[in-house]
């Protein structure tokens, strides 16, 4: 388990990095935290001829509020997301998601840009990107793009990123003052990728009916899913009785997950129902907590 040869590049600026990526195209890979890329290289499943190390580029690591949105620089490490007081206050699902990624010893190195670009369908940040209407900013030698999360993830480990293109920032919506959230998952062990994970946000109108709801699921398809149709249908629904369970059951009915060695399709469907319902109940509870406070 030793990586194949590559040429190493350490650009100091984004422009230098983009020039290198433009020059080497398909043969180049960006390394940020390297927590997913290097294992692949050690197993020789990835053999880039050129490795462009972006860790020395200034200005790609930040968490800031901008006009009601939260902007996170691509090189921001999971630990920084986990510990950001701004996020805890304005977008609490993000620190919760970060805290659930791998282990303490990995979170110091892994980066949010890397996690999104990897596009693991059961990973935490792609799920949150879908839940929180993320806009992913990219740069390449030919220009800049802003891609909505729902357009960004194409398939397992596949995004719309072009060769030569680099994620620079992710922008997420802040949660409203009276908005609650929930994030639930089932993994075999602490730190493992979830078999299924589910996230939700919830806001009610004055009549105790659902005003705004967002629902996202991971581990049940080739990309994390956002259930926009079901969200639409759920608006105006009163939160009482088995409301959460009913929404979750509808979600499960719509989705057709696949089986693998960790879980059967049937089990994944059951988990959608259990975990999404729990996430919705958490969202309601937190919403009530925020209103009371």
């Amino acid at each position: 388990m030793k990586p194949a040869k590559f040429e190493y590049h350490k650009p100091e600026t984004l422009e230098e990095a983009l020039a290198l990526l433009a020059e080497y195209g398909d043969e180049a890979r960006i390394i940020a935290g390297g927590q997913s890329l290097v294992p692949m290289m050690n197993m020789r499943l990835a053999q880039p001829a050129h490795l462009v190390d972006i860790n020395n580029i200034e200005g790609l690591s930040y968490i800031r509020a901008n006009n009601g949105s939260l902007e996170i620089g691509a090189l921001t490490r999971h630990r920084q997301v986990e510990e950001s007081s701004l996020l805890v206050q304005a977008c609490p699902p993000m620190p919760a998601a970060a805290r659930n990624i791998g282990h303490y010893g990995l979170r110091a190195r892994g980066s949010i840009g890397g996690s999104l670009a990897l596009a693991d369908p059961s990973a935490e940040f792609p799920l949150m990107a879908m839940l929180l209407n993320a806009e992913i900013s990219t740069r390449s030698a030919v220009g800049a793009r802003s891609i909505l999360a729902r357009d960004f993830f194409v398939s397992v480990f596949t995004t719309t990123l072009e060769p030569g293109e680099i994620v620079t920032q992710v922008s997420l919506r802040a949660l409203g003052q009276s908005e609650g959230w929930g994030f639930r998952w089932l993994a075999r062990r602490s730190g493992d990728y979830a078999i299924v994970n589910a996230a939700a946000t919830l806001a009610l109108n004055g009549a105790g009916q659902i005003d705004r709801i967002s629902l996202a699921l991971g581990g049940v398809g080739a990309t994390p899913l956002r259930l926009s149709q079901l969200e639409q249908e759920s608006r105006g629904k009163a939160v009482g009785g088995d409301w959460a369970r009913e929404i979750a059951a509808q979600a499960a009915a719509q989705i057709d997950p696949e089986s693998d060695k960790n879980a059967s399709a049937e089990f994944r469907k059951e988990l959608i129902e259990v975990l999404l319902a729990a996430a919705l109940e958490d969202a309601l509870r937190r919403m009530e907590g925020r209103m009371a406070a």
Partner: peptide, 11 residues
């Protein structure tokens, strides 16, 4: 006794 197996029994 994985969750998947236990669920398959309970189903």
């Amino acid at each position: 006794l994985s969750p998947d197996y236990i669920r398959s029994l309970l189903r």
